[in-house]
């Protein structure tokens, strides 16, 4: 079970999208999201949906990953739909429930908004499914680089974030193991007031912290033994070379954004 924990649900692969440079992927996603907010017609939105599904096909992502990725927004989507159904008026009355009415404008707008939301999540999902958290971090780190000029150690910050990502699954596994150990000795993490619950977590958090500090100590040693030095020049295995393909992708999404504005799609 716990073997399946993965952060940012990266799906190993070798597709076109896996190979795009994160320095291009991240701004491209931002532009696509902007396009999604710019489009106001159903046909345009449906084109985007078809596009994202095609992209998922190209990235060879199994369908269940989409469902899994959409699950967290299920309630938000339902809630949004509910609000629009009952509170947006206009068009013909489709349905009457006591004093409440569902009118066609509400239905259309509700559907439009949740479709937009789903598309938005799907595009973001495509990014996180095809980009390792590490290269995502490096991609984001690139945009933080200007902060280096005002003295922020951006390289080190990226390293810290990368290590955090490396250890999150390990620490989750460890906390689950500790929890099972405590439960088998009669601890109860489920019932009681919120204060009781918080108090019950103490025997979990203390050993977790102790072990995390020990890990940090050993990891620092291992890094040093492999020649890591603060502030020293490093190279990278996955050097961020921006290829012609990357530029082409950026161009395509820019054109999409421009078109959606120009033609008021």
């Amino acid at each position: 079970m716990s073997g399946g924990i993965s952060l940012g649900h990266y799906l190993p692969g070798n597709s076109f999208f896996h190979q795009l440079n994160p320095r291009i992927k991240v701004p491209s996603l931002v532009i696509i999201l902007a396009t999604l907010f710019a489009v106001t017609s159903f046909p345009a939105l449906l084109t985007m949906i078809v596009l994202v599904f095609l992209m998922f096909r190209l990235a060879r992502v199994p369908f269940r990953y989409l469902l899994k990725g959409l699950r967290p927004i299920l309630y938000i989507a339902l809630f949004a739909l509910f609000i629009f159904l009952f509170f947006t008026k206009g068009g013909v009355v489709l349905f009457r429930l006591g004093p409440l009415t569902v009118e066609s404008a509400g239905l259309w707008q509700g559907l439009f908004v949740i479709t937009r939301l789903v598309t938005l999540v799907l595009f973001s999902l495509l990014l996180t499914l095809t980009t390792t958290p590490l290269s995502l971090t490096h991609g984001l780190g690139y945009f933080l680089k200007p902060l280096g000029r005002i003295g922020l150690p951006t390289e080190e910050v990226v390293m810290i974030m990368a290590i955090a990502m490396r250890f999150i699954p390990t620490l989750i596994e460890e906390s689950q193991r500790l929890m099972r150990a405590q439960v088998s000795r009669g601890a109860d993490f489920e019932s009681g007031s919120i204060f009781r619950k918080a108090k019950n977590l103490v025997p979990l958090i203390v050993p977790l912290f102790v072990s995390a500090f020990r890990r940090a100590d050993e990891l620092a040693m291992a890094m040093e033994a492999r020649g890591y030095r603060l502030g020293a020049k490093r190279t990278r295995l996955h050097e961020d070379v921006i290829t012609a393909t990357d530029w082409a992708v950026l161009l395509v999404v820019l054109v999409m954004l421009a078109a959606s504005f120009y033609f008021k799609l």
Binding site: T132, P133, L134, A162, I163, M165, R166, T170, R214, R215, E218, L219, A222, M223, R226, G227, Y228, R229, A232, K233, R234, T235, R236, L237, H238, E239
Partner: peptide, 25 residues
């Protein structure tokens, strides 16, 4: 073994020491 693997994938971990040596990609 858990506390000496630095990177988020096997290949990046194998590369860690080489990156510190500043070898070309």
């Amino acid at each position: 073994p858990d506390n000496q693997i630095v990177a988020t994938t096997v290949e990046e971990d194998i590369a860690f020491g080489l990156e510190n040596m500043a070898l070309p990609a």
